[in-house]
Simulated scan of single mutants.
Amino acid sequence: MEQRHLGRSGLLVSRLGLGTMSWGQDTDPDEAAAQLSAFVDAGGTLVDTADVYSGGDSERILGHLLRELVDRDELVVATKAAIRPNGRYDASRRHLLAALDASLDRLGLEYVDLWQLHVYDPATPIEETLSALDEAVLSGRTRYVGVSNYSGWQLAKAAAWQRAWPGRTPIVSAQLEYSLLSRDIEREAVPAALDAGAGLLPWSPLGRGVLTGKYRTGIPADSRAAAPHFADFVQPYLDEECARIVESVVTAAEGLGVSPLSVALSWVRDRPGVVAPVVGARSASQLSGALESEDLALPASIRAALDDVSDMSVSHP
Rank of each mutant, 00 (worst) to 15 (best):
N86T: 10
S92E: 10
R72I: 04
R303N: 02
R143I: 01
A78C: 15
V279C: 04
V76L: 00
L36M: 05
E128V: 06
V249F: 06
P205N: 05
T142F: 02
L66K: 06
G24Q: 01
T142K: 08
P236H: 11
W115E: 01
I61N: 06
L107Y: 11
A99L: 07
D295Q: 09
A193K: 02
V263G: 07
V250H: 11
E59K: 07
D101H: 05
P202G: 06
L109H: 05
G7W: 07
G56T: 09
Q3V: 03
E254D: 13
L256E: 09
I83A: 03
A174F: 05
G55E: 14
G218P: 05
M21V: 15
D134C: 03
A82Y: 09
R106I: 13
A81N: 03
W161N: 04
I245C: 07
A284F: 02
M312T: 09
Y215E: 08
S148N: 06
D26M: 15
A159D: 03
S173N: 10
A81E: 01
P191R: 02
G146R: 12
W153H: 14
K80G: 10
G207R: 12
D73Q: 15
P220Y: 08
R8Q: 14
A99M: 06
P29F: 00
S9G: 03
H95I: 04
P202D: 07
L155V: 13
R216C: 12
D30A: 15
A231F: 06
L96V: 09
A158M: 09
V119I: 13
R163D: 11
L104C: 07
L194A: 12
E240V: 12
P277H: 09
V246D: 08
T169F: 04
K214G: 03
A252L: 01
V172T: 14
R88H: 14
T129W: 04
A102E: 12
G207T: 11
L75Q: 01
G10S: 14
A132E: 09
L96N: 04
Q154P: 03
L62W: 00
A98G: 11
H95P: 00
E254I: 13
S151Q: 06
Q162M: 09
A305M: 14
L46T: 07
I302H: 08
E240H: 11
R84Q: 13
V279T: 00
S139V: 01
V246C: 09
S103D: 04
R282K: 13
L62P: 01
F39A: 11
R168G: 02
G19P: 02
S313I: 07
G255C: 08
S266M: 06
S151N: 01
L114R: 03
D308A: 15
R143V: 04
E186K: 06
P202V: 03
S103K: 00
E292K: 12
V145L: 02
H118P: 09
R72N: 02
